[in-house]
Amino acid sequence: MTTTTTTYDVTGMTCGHCVSSVTEEVGKIPGVQKVEVDLVAGGQSHVTVSSATELTVDQVRAAVDEAGYELTETTA
Score class of each variant (00 low, 15 high):
Met1Ile: 07
Met1Trp: 03
Thr2Tyr: 04
Thr2Ala: 08
Thr3His: 05
Thr4Glu: 05
Thr5Ile: 10
Thr5Ser: 10
Thr5Trp: 00
Thr5Gly: 00
Thr6Ala: 00
Tyr8Asp: 05
Asp9Arg: 15
Asp9Gly: 13
Asp9Pro: 01
Asp9Tyr: 10
Val10Glu: 01
Thr11Ser: 14
Gly12Tyr: 08
Gly12Gln: 08
Met13Arg: 04
Thr14Gly: 05
Cys15Asp: 11
Cys15Ser: 11
Gly16Gln: 09
Gly16Tyr: 06
Gly16Leu: 09
His17Met: 08
Cys18Asp: 05
Val19Leu: 03
Ser20Leu: 12
Ser20Ile: 06
Ser21Ile: 02
Val22His: 02
Val22Cys: 01
Glu24Leu: 09
Glu24Ser: 13
Glu24Lys: 15
Glu25Asp: 00
Val26Asn: 06
Val26Asp: 05
Gly27Ser: 13
Gly27His: 10
Lys28Ala: 13
Ile29Pro: 04
Gly31Ser: 12
Val32Leu: 06
Val32Phe: 08
Val32Arg: 02
Gln33Leu: 13
Gln33Ile: 05
Gln33Met: 06
Val35Arg: 03
Glu36Trp: 04
Asp38Arg: 14
Asp38Val: 11
Asp38Phe: 04
Asp38Lys: 15
Asp38Glu: 15
Leu39Trp: 14
Val40Glu: 14
Val40His: 15
Ala41Gly: 04
Ala41Arg: 08
Gly42His: 12
Gly42Val: 10
Gly42Phe: 12
Gly43Ile: 00
Gly43Glu: 14
Gly43Ser: 13
Gln44Gly: 08
Ser45Cys: 01
Ser45Glu: 02
Ser45Leu: 00
His46Tyr: 13
His46Lys: 15
Val47Gln: 11
Thr48Arg: 08
Thr48Trp: 02
Thr48His: 04
Val49Phe: 04
Val49Ala: 00
Ser50Val: 02
Ala52Asn: 12
Ala52Asp: 15
Ala52Pro: 02
Glu54Trp: 13
Glu54Val: 12
Leu55Tyr: 02
Val57Glu: 15
Asp58Tyr: 04
Asp58Gly: 01
Gln59Phe: 11
Val60Lys: 06
Arg61Trp: 02
Arg61Ile: 07
Arg61Gly: 07
Ala62Ser: 15
Ala62Cys: 09
Ala62Asn: 14
Val64Asn: 09
Val64Arg: 10
Glu66Asp: 14
Glu66Met: 03
Gly68Leu: 05
Gly68Thr: 10
Gly68Arg: 05
Tyr69Met: 02
Glu70Trp: 05
Glu70Lys: 14
Leu71Lys: 09
Glu73Phe: 07
Glu73Ile: 00
Thr74Arg: 15
